[in-house]
């Protein structure tokens, strides 16, 4: 099982609902976030292009954050979901430094926190909170190994990219372009 997510940059309107929904679902304290939205504008008026991306941890297959964690607090759990065990984490920050996507942060309680792909929901057969809330339905989630999952289907249908593939992390967050 390899969980993955695809975000359609052509439909995303940058509303940030995915961000609030994650905060309320996962008790992310105000001032912090596990996902965020990037807007890139290119060109000169009126020849312009705009890309909107809802970003979060890429649940990298080759995750530097897991490799560099001295305590094993960062680990790859079922389905390739990269997680942090709060009571194993010493807050050394190595994983934060190692993540090319700035996907992790220090929770005010001291341990490192990040997107969990809402595995507590996924276990129940639900979509992650951000996917479930998105008003434009521009996010797809599922198992890459299952050809019938939403994410597999949409990745087959559409052109996609990942962020900084050169970093060699093998991200599991795709952007439909």
């Amino acid at each position: 099982m390899r969980y993955a997510m695809a975000v359609d940059t052509k439909k995303c309107v940058g509303c940030s609902d995915c961000v609030v929904a994650c905060q309320t679902e996962n008790n992310v304290p105000i001032g912090y976030c596990r996902d965020w939205v990037v807007e890139v504008t290119d060109g000169t008026y009126p020849q312009l292009e705009l890309e909107l991306r809802s970003e979060r941890c890429n649940h990298c297959e080759n995750a530097p954050c897991v490799r560099c964690c001295p305590t094993g607090a960062s680990f790859i759990s079922e389905g390739g979901i990269v997680k942090v065990k709060e009571n194993k984490c010493i807050g050394c920050g190595a994983c934060i430094t190692s993540c090319p996507y700035d996907a992790r942060f220090v929770h005010p309680r001291g341990y490192v926190d990040k997107c969990t792909f809402c595995d507590h929901r996924v276990k129940e057969g639900l979509n992650p909170a951000c996917v479930a809330v998105c008003p434009t339905k521009c996010m797809y989630f599922g198992d890459l190994d299952d050809p019938n999952s939403d994410v597999s289907k949409v990745l087959k249908m559409r052109k996609s990219k990942t962020l900084i593939p050169e970093a060699g992390t093998i991200p599991h967050l795709y952007f439909l372009i």
């Binding site: 609902d17 008790n27 479930a132 998105c134 008003p135």
Partner: peptide, 22 residues
């Protein structure tokens, strides 16, 4: 803890907007 949309509602189809979620 949270507010989520009502799936049966034709106005939102189970998905609130960011302001509704917030």
């Amino acid at each position: 803890q949270k507010i989520i949309g009502n799936d049966d509602d034709p106005a939102c189809n189970g998905r609130l907007c960011p302001r509704g979620t917030g």
